[in-house]
Design a protein around this nucleic acid. Sequence first.
DNA 1: AGCCATTTTTAAGGAATTTATAAGGAAGAG
DNA 2: CTCTTCCTTATAAATTCCTTAAAAATGGCT
Lengths: 224, 224
Amino acid sequence: MPKLLVVDDDLDMLALVRAALEKDGHQVDTETDSTTVQPARCHLYDLLLLDVMMPVEDGFSLCSRIRAEVDCPILFLTAKAEDAALVQGFGLGADDYIKKPFSIAELRARVNAHLRREVRQPTHTLSQGGVRFDMQAKVAIAGEHTLPFTKGEYAICEHLVLHAGQVFTKEQLYEAVFGFDAEGDSSAVAEHIKNIRAKLKAGGLSPIETVWGVGYKWRKDSVR
Amino acid sequence: MPKLLVVDDDLDMLALVRAALEKDGHQVDTETDSTTVQPARCHLYDLLLLDVMMPVEDGFSLCSRIRAEVDCPILFLTAKAEDAALVQGFGLGADDYIKKPFSIAELRARVNAHLRREVRQPTHTLSQGGVRFDMQAKVAIAGEHTLPFTKGEYAICEHLVLHAGQVFTKEQLYEAVFGFDAEGDSSAVAEHIKNIRAKLKAGGLSPIETVWGVGYKWRKDSVR
DNA sequence: AGCCATTTTTAAGGAATTTATAAGGAAGAG
DNA sequence: CTCTTCCTTATAAATTCCTTAAAAATGGCT
């Protein structure tokens, strides 16, 4: 289920856009104040819809603030119809520029077209609990910093995140990650978990829960 | 240099569009009769611009004929402003729908935005981490000097840079660069990496990171 | 509440694995 | 033949993984 963020100071517009996009089965988060949008949080979304004219920080400023951090499509949604503004918007790295008044049908068509192209390209990153895993680069990124996981630590995290919310015993984890099932795996896994938690905690995160008597699980992001 | 195909029965429009896109340094091919467009030939292009209303076969028909064959962005360029047509266009797999009359600035901005998203770089030079690779001349240049890479060293670098940010095991690297997979490749690759790093270090650069337990990767510039 | 058994967490050290470096020889080009 | 390039081998250095053992926490029990 694609996850979208819409930023607009106009509540009526937000409601309208949300209703339109939820018709297509998307999960829509909204924000009325662009200054509260954190670049590091944006990688949680598959697509961003930004209003241009907003009181404190306008959409262009917001876009330039976050474009370096996120790779997903950014669409402007605006009443500014002048060519100069449109060119400026695309120049900031935007992927579309939808002029108001727009029809709901057009909005949905354009959003879906951008999402469709994203899906076509092999996605090799996944985010959970504020951590983004790049399976090609083999790195985990929390906010600004990349977490210095070792190979084994990264593998355990990746497996937990891929099955977020599911509990694994230490033995299951060892087997899933390292293949075979040795003797003292449980202690080894416990040691890894300790180190992983320490590194996550340095980034202010603690997404790994202990299920007493059973094992560990990565807390799944709540689906609002 | 990106290669574009524009299909329109209106010669004036074709000239206008061609002039606009060539300003951005693109190579523009044109076609006036959509029926002569062969799906198999479309692979040559990085982006297609289709007029909707054409006498024999309209743009929608053409799009549905070729969409399965080509993955590149398809943009409609049309006077049909109705929502239904727009939705139909996107439904056929199009990536944008530009309504006439459009400004040259908007056309250029949209075309460039779509090209920017394309992974395949038609250019034969690329820069990463302060090193510029000329894939035609097979030379790497850092600042003033050309780096004295051997053929194998250059090949490894080029592959790493082409997939900057992605980790490769020594075996993967050997196979990707030299074709087959022999016995002691890993040591050979390690040796190459050592020499490459020495030569890069002479220029004050060290873009190759080792991911312990996995392999090597070229650090990706975080510039868009 | 207090105590005990079990489980988890933490800590530290050594074993094992992986990478870096260096030197020598085989193969091919000029 | 000479030189460069490439690969192999050997050794040193670095990092990670696992084991062991003790401390802390949890849940159940009286």
